[in-house]
Design a protein around this nucleic acid. Structure first.
Ligand SMILES: [Mn+2]
Ligand SMILES: [Mn+2]
Ligand SMILES: [Mn+2]
Ligand SMILES: [Mn+2]
Lengths: 219, 219
DNA sequence: AATTATTTTTAGATAAATCTAAATAAATAA
DNA sequence: TTATTTATTTAGATTTATCTAAAAATAATT
């Protein structure tokens, strides 16, 4: 069954939202897709008929098994294209999201699989998010929020909490990216900021907001 | 001014049709876009309002200056993506048209220009068609129809008359592609077939229809 | 429990892109 | 030159995706 671009964007948004919380509400979806609740309700009815999700009025939605499968395929395409843009075309990691938002809708299984080979079957996209394989499986690593790491621990940045241009601009300025290895030097109770050290360079200060937007793994 | 995918497909179709003939008729466009004449008329009115073409009822259309500029940009994207698919992703030249038909609509000037660099600024797509640069300029080579070449002449295949899967399948079978160098051995008056020789292999016979679908240059 | 506020759905419109069937214009043939 | 055929346009519908405004359901507060 072939989905329209709008339908694919809804399916993907529901997928991401239901990871965090349980049922996804109409308002959440409207906010996430920059559209209006009334439009969301219409689309939910349509996707229900296509049995991509389970929806009862006023109760929010969750993807069906088939819906989840479709979502994983779109996420796979999105992240593979992001990897391509950064790795092959030298885009900055803060510039690729929008473009991938269009490329993800190109329909050709052969294209995706050949792209995957060409890129060397990458496991993570430029933002540290795992790339599903053609069966929808992806690696899961135990990742922690930087704000929760104890002093003196050495960790590696492996993900960011949002794709916003503002966050990525700040990270670029502080020289922090996926794979950056850093040590927690000190934590301040007043504003919950964190002092860290990257490699052997000077100590730098990370605000509470920024620390909460960084996911790390122990090494 | 941002065009929809449907508008871009119309603009590109008009561009290709007006190369061959003068004014492009409603029926020609309908056939080329696999749509109905009534739909074409509607779209022509819309594109006229956007001043992308000059249209008077019953007289057919031609692109305006701006329309031609838009068309060249779409053609550029289409051919660059085709080159990418064949050169980097190992697609066959007979498999790329459909996929490029979607990729050509991804809107990002930066993407196109970076792709162009990544590919090494190719001048021709896998079917031998010239790729416009970012200003809309493309090389023009004097090319002839194979059917018109004299006996004993040595030529190089540089283009095909159509992108149809049927043609490309036949060419693949006969081991003929862009860049193939061949010699005209004999021409038969009965069916206007042509006997040719590729490199030092055996003579093979080319039907009139096939010879008319092959463009070559003198070397 | 009754009132108020919030969320969600329905009703009714609109714009884009398409279609079929009918009307009209242009081209061709008798 | 009139009649016939062909090409093109108009009229009226349909599907998809959106919106605003109003109604209804649910949740939160007195
Ligand atoms: Mn998208
Ligand atoms: Mn990403
Ligand atoms: Mn296209
Ligand atoms: Mn081509």
């Amino acid at each position: 069954m072939n989905l329209t671009i709008a339908e694919e964007n809804y399916i993907k948004a529901i997928f991401h939202l239901q990871q965090a919380e349980g049922n996804v509400s109409t308002n959440q979806l409207a906010a996430s897709l920059h559209t209006k609740p009334a439009s969301v309700t219409d689309m939910l009815k349509k996707l229900t008929i296509k049995s991509l999700l389970n929806y009862e009025p006023y109760q929010g939605v969750r993807l069906s098994k088939d819906g989840k499968k479709q979502a994983l395929n779109i996420v796979r395409k999105h992240r593979l294209w992001e990897f391509f843009l950064v790795d092959k075309l030298q885009f900055g990691w803060d510039e690729v999201h929008e473009v991938a938002e269009e490329l993800e809708h190109v329909r050709s299984k052969k294209l995706v699989d050949k792209l995957d080979s060409f890129l060397g079957h990458p496991k993570f996209d430029p933002h540290g998010d795992p790339i599903p394989d053609s069966n929808g499986n992806m690696v899961t690593i135990r990742q922690f929020n930087l704000i929760d790491i104890k002093i003196s621990t050495i960790v590696e940045v492996c993900g960011v909490g949002s794709q916003s241009a503002e966050l990525l601009e700040l990270l670029r300025h502080k020289n922090i990216g996926i794979g950056t290895v850093l040590k927690i030097i000190r934590k301040f109770d007043f504003d919950h900021s964190v002092e860290i050290q990257i490699k052997n360079s000077d100590h730098i200060n990370i605000s509470q907001q920024l620390a909460q937007a960084l996911f790390v793994k122990l090494i």
